[in-house]
């Protein structure tokens, strides 16, 4: 293809996105678009499945049958999200095995929030309330992103995430209306999860590398800082309902801006975790790698069996 032809294809492509048309896997797309989407969607998929681990940690210890069932169902939803997202990613010409390989080798990233430990039952509440809450803020705009399979996956995912968020809030609510010990457990969880949740919305705009291109492709509609502000404005009144104190002495309603002012985020901690040195990075990655390696013989057997079965069918035909 001549440079001119490519230019004209690119112009058409940009115009389609500007008109809010969906790009489908078989459509022509710039290589950079494909690569960026593989990176972002797979990162999202990895976050879903690594995200199963911190909450999975409490399934066997859930305090009631109702909670156990709800937690199992939630973690299973996350597996389902991983599945849709890997499938969306595969339409761009990359296999799930390759994507796993990137996760296991540390080449691909996943959301840093899952590198924090879940220490008490209240963490199940805090994660649902804050982490799923922040995820929704990140993801709702993606329901109308330009790449069709991703947008459709996100519609489904967002519905379930808002259910998770309500469930998390409800766990917190119960604790906050329980014994002093339960309320203290809830406060402790908020203290530990608040700042990492704010960091989850990504580095501050000045440090964010991909924003401009992502805006054009509708992978992003608002900047990280705008999303963070939205999250804070939405969450502070919820903490008030719970009677919990947000661990930020600078947090204050600003009449002029109509937003909350908040304290400085410890970005050093964020980068430390992103670079692989958070409290549970090793545990999370080892758990994923371990499951994959221990499951190799199972996957091999399933493949061998399927092959034998299809050979049997062929033999029958001839």
């Amino acid at each position: 293809m001549s440079e001119e032809q490519i230019k004209s294809l690119e112009a058409d492509f940009d115009a389609r996105i500007a008109r809010d048309e969906k790009i489908e896997p078989k459509d022509w797309m710039p290589e950079k678009y494909r690569k960026t989407h593989i990176r972002q969607i797979s990162q999202h998929a990895h976050s879903e499945i690594v995200g199963m681990l911190p909450e999975g940690n409490w399934i066997t210890r859930a305090p009631s049958l109702r909670r156990k069932v709800a937690l199992l169902a939630k973690v299973q939803d996350e597996a389902g999200h991983g599945l849709y997202l890997y499938s969306a990613c595969e339409t761009l010409g990359v296999s799930r095995d390759e994507l796993y390989e990137q996760l296991h080798s540390g080449k691909a990233k996943y959301s840093s929030i899952f590198n924090y430990p879940t220490l008490t039952w209240a963490d199940m509440g805090a994660i649902g309330w804050l982490v799923d809450g922040a995820a929704i803020i990140n993801q709702v705009p993606l329901c109308s992103t330009s790449f069709g399979p991703y947008a459709r996956a996100m519609v489904r995912v967002c519905k379930e995430e808002s259910f998770h968020q309500r469930q998390g809030f409800e766990i917190m609510y119960k604790l906050c209306n329980g014994t002093p010990e339960q309320k203290e457990m809830a406060q402790d969880a908020l203290n530990r999860w608040w700042w990492p949740s704010l960091m989850m919305l990504g580095p501050t705009d000045a440090e964010s590398v991909h924003t401009e291109q992502s805006m054009k492709w509708k992978l992003k509609r608002k900047t990280n800082d705008e999303l963070r502000q939205q999250f804070i404005d939405q969450t502070v009144p919820q903490a008030d309902i719970l009677g919990l104190k947000i661990p930020d002495t600078d947090l204050k309603w600003n009449e002029e801006t109509g937003h909350y002012n908040f304290g400085e985020i410890q970005w050093d901690e964020f980068w430390q975790v992103v670079k692989g040195h958070g409290p549970c990075n090793k545990e999370r990655l080892n758990a994923r790698k371990g499951a994959w390696e221990k499951g190799a013989w199972v996957r091999d057997a399933a493949m061998a069996y399927a092959e034998k079965q299809s050979n049997k069918k062929i033999e029958k035909v001839v």
């Binding site: 499945i49 973690v75 597996a79």
Partner: peptide, 17 residues
């Protein structure tokens, strides 16, 4: 329930859960 998140594949993980 102990296995949730640790299955040999996403599909078997979901099924066991």
């Amino acid at each position: 329930g102990e296995l949730c998140g640790h299955g040999p594949s996403l599909e078997t993980d979901i099924a066991c859960t």
